[in-house]
Design a protein around this nucleic acid. Structure first.
Lengths: 103, 103
DNA sequence: ATTGATGTTCGAAAGTTGTCGAACGATTCA
DNA sequence: TGAATCGTTCGACAACTTTCGAACATCAAT
């Protein structure tokens, strides 16, 4: 997996983004952020230990799918929609649509 | 990973497709098939042992990304574009475009 | 029949991933 | 200061992936 923190736009790799989106929990997070916009980790109520959830946020962050802004004790996450659309036009949109269309 | 052979259209899962597309070798194969259409394994000249390549084709097949038609000694592979577009509109197109746009 | 061409399958080795509890760090509030 | 909140990090473990050589299966052509 990617090493550093948040990659720059140019550093975002297709294969890594695909990998980040290959886990149901992470897809859930992406769908949540797509629908609600910037949100702290805690508002996405997935029944899972904090450490597991933090792991998934980390993967999304380090692959360039989300960005995290720290404010006080809260970590606000948001999709890097602009960066992703610039790099891979249409990809994020079709993924989000696919998540919402699933049964 | 998925168990059986080729999944039916309804059985294709977003997370599994994303996983299949999270490997550079497999992205290469997908780009190749998108450009050239149905092709036997051997025409996609990726420098790798047969067994490794076969593994990647297997992943693509079992996740529903490609379909394999056997004719004589050749195994012709093609993208399941219709099935993927029905299930996840726009996804395959944006992925293929992204692969071609990469440096 | 033998050989050659295409791919698959098997088994092993090395690396990666997801999950979880426990410990930690930073911030806020009483 | 003390306690609560919000998340991260660490270490461990089981499960899964990637890679590869070797063996195998199937078909075609000699």
């Amino acid at each position: 997996m990617r090493a550093g923190k948040e990659p720059t736009r140019d550093q975002i790799e297709l294969s890594e983004v695909m990998y980040a989106l290959s886990d149901p929990v992470r897809l859930e997070i992406v769908a949540f952020l797509a629908q609600r916009g910037e949100q702290p980790c805690s508002t996405c109520c997935i029944d899972m230990p904090k450490s597991s959830l933090s792991h998934h946020y980390k993967v999304l962050r380090e692959t360039g799918v989300i960005s995290t802004r720290i404010e006080g004790t809260r970590h606000y996450n948001s999709l890097r929609a602009d960066d992703l659309n610039t790099r891979f036009p249409g990809l994020l949109g079709s993924v989000v649509e696919a998540i919402h269309n699933r049964l």
